[in-house]
Design a protein around this nucleic acid. Sequence first.
RNA 1: GGGCGUGUAGCUCAGGUGGUUAGAGCGUUACGUUGACAUCGUAAAGGUCAGAGGUUCGAGUCCUCUUACGCCCACCA
Length: 870
Amino acid sequence: MTAYKETRKLDDKYNASDIESRCLAFWEKDNTYRFDKTASRENTYVVDTPPPTVSGSLHVGHIMSYTQTDVKVRYQRMKGKSVFYPIGWDDNGLPTERRVQNYFNIACNPNLPYDPNFKPVHDPKNDGKRVEVSRKNFIEACEILTTEDEKAFEDIFRQIGHSYDWDLKYTTISPLAIKVSQDSFLDLVEKGIACSVEAPTMWDVTFQSAVAQAEIEDREVDGFFHDIQFGVEGEPDVHFTIATTRPEFLPACIAVVAHPDDERYQKYFGKKAIVPLFDIPVPIVPSEHAEMDKGTGIMMVCTFGDAADVAWWKQSGLPIKQIVGLDGRILPNEYGVEPFVSLNPQKAAAYYNQITGLKMKEARAQIVEFLRESGDLLAEPKPIKHPVKFYEKGTLPLEFVSSRQWFIKILDYKKELVDAGREIKWFPGHMQTRYETWVDGLNQDWCISRQRFFGVPFPIWYKLDENGLINYNEPIFATRDQLPVDPMTDAPAGYTEEMRGKPNGFVGEKDIMDTWATSSLTPQIAMAFAPEGHHLSLPFDVRPQAHDIIRTWAFYTIMKAWAHDKTIPWKEAHISGFVLDPDRKKMSKSKGNVVTPMYLLEKYSSDAVRYWAARAKLGIDIAFEEQIMEQGKKLTMKMFNASKFVYMMVQNAGIDLNADYPKMISNPLDKAWISKLMETVKASVKAFEANDYSFALEMTEKCFWDFCDNYLEIVKGRAYSDDAVSAVSSLMLTIDTFAKLFAPFTPFMAEEIYATRPWGTDEKSVHVTAFPAVSDYETIAGNPDLYDKTVALVEMVRKAKAEEKRSLRTPVVALTVSANEKTIALLEQSLSDIENALNVKDHNVTLEAHSDEMAVTNCVLGEDEKKVKA
RNA sequence: GGGCGUGUAGCUCAGGUGGUUAGAGCGUUACGUUGACAUCGUAAAGGUCAGAGGUUCGAGUCCUCUUACGCCCACCA
């Protein structure tokens, strides 16, 4: 007896929660989902599971997409594959930092010393007056909270029956993951793909960190066009009108450009324009960058108002005038703009000093005021709505700030990365287009350094010269055997900790890596966490993920696999859709329309929620609808009751429970039913092989309701008779089959049914049995037409009874059916079952071979038996 | 501006090699309680398959155009 059977009472009423705890205990004890490391790579199904970001609570969207993956994985397992199905938590990075700040009401100040006595406590008031703590204390707080959050995530994933091997659990901030990530970085440095550059970078002034192209988004914001008058050096009567949305950048203007073909400005090329207020002479340069028909056709280039300015500056060879600080405020002029190359330095400095220290928006208002006073503002600013780049998590527009950052050169390899994407099979196929669009549109290398705290550190130190100044040009890289390292606490080879920060000593790199620099290595990390002696290798079989992170997770993972090993990370990418709220709007915390999953699992059962998830097709956004879960609940309950009914009939029939029951199916109607079942097996296998799990579910469910409503109703009379063997054997095979067909979708109920069968000697979980194959049924299957015609006739008489508003048990005194000879011949084979199902008295059925179309030509209903008794 | 996707019953969605009368669940209505199942069953009503043209013996399905919505990318003086 299995552990499962010992704990079950056969006459139990359906109780989802009992079944779930029985199954979870059984699977755990049985090691049902353990990865078999001895299996060959060809015989292993390898999944690159998304490690969810641990920052708060799971979303129903997670439940949907992760369950869809679990369904496919369970099918592969039943096909006999060893399954490598790890789970990880993505716990490094900004989302975690933000949650920790709010939860404990603390902020990281890297200049503070470590306080070993500091214990973070949850502070719900979150008044914004945060306690400042050291970097190490902050990281400890992150670890405390992520551990708590990860527990909550694990509880939900276990409860919903995802078949991960929990022994393979990893976290992206763990030492082993850090090692993999640092190793990847060093490899890319060696290959010349990663390098550090002092360059203008997109900068979020709130988080005070560089960000990458993948993390930015455009937002439509209110702004103003300002028509500003520029002069021309040596030509006091000539003025240009330049329109700009960012007049605060006037002191950072480095040139004025017009299109080379623009006749209005051709004669001024080579001359200098005079920036108003600051009287800075800047070259007037021809450039394709300017469009003749846009505005006045002439524009100013500043360092840096936008990405176009950066691009233009790069090829211009002109020096930067940096006026924006890392905090998003105007720098004092000794930084970027001093000395003013002004025709009137005192006047320029006077204006500039009045905007120093202001936020960009304040500086803009101030400059507009000055322009208005000086008469250089030619018209009142015109309000416009225009798209502005923001960090996706930020609240203020991005600035372009020059700083030293580590980059991964992706622009050089766009073609290779598009080609790599083409080697991967995308489901649905159009998601590949989305990938290619993203790669084609890349215009910046991947900036991987972040000026944050909780993340993977760079394995780098810098030498200090005799004056204690940092030499960035010759970083000291960690050696591979040193990894993982934290350069802020570990010393490089050949140095001692005492030399940190001292002249001729060293300093550690303070920055950490972009969280995607690590997340893009989930296949490599998962392999690092796999038991020794495994036969795993790239490419994995599948990457399941949502479409919003094609530009990040999918792209970066493909990039890393290509850069490291010139391979693709996975053979297939399965892209799931989103769960939208019932009004088809995206769910988000700020809208308060997020549905939390635990409540649903309790209300509808894990199987029911899984049913809802599996109903949604890959890549299709669905509206959240609890009624589907209700439907799933009804389905599983029906499975429970139908199987219980069959078990009762099996026990009542008193047949040999160890017999080879499929061979005992001999009745033509039973064989006909098995052929219907076989059709469903065929459709289901075909659908699964095409990753179309939802179609497999649909076909299985349809067949199951047909079974309950028709076959079971029609044969139950015979199953209770002396002639029960064929019918009961057929019911046993049917229950076995449904348990397996439903197993990927409703694993709890499937296990319940399979484990508690009164027959069979299999003590294994249903989840490691073989998925039904057509060949299992071929020798048993009969003529499906017999089943279809029988059901059709039964339905006709049921309908006749319903139209008379009579009970379905109402006896039929006489029945005449007209059909063609072939149909008559079929119906004769199932006639006694039909009579039984319809409660026909005295075998009074006449089959007439008259018409081609089957029809009931006479149906005489008797008195309701109950009424007669009364 | 370029691209991708979607438009089928009141609602949420299937429709799988173009083939009888277009399906399911929910909702509505009527009836029934049948050897497991009231967290049930049987049935009815409800559709110019977004619109127009085309290919075909035959189109919800293939092609073209139009239209509405959603998303992605780009532009951003």
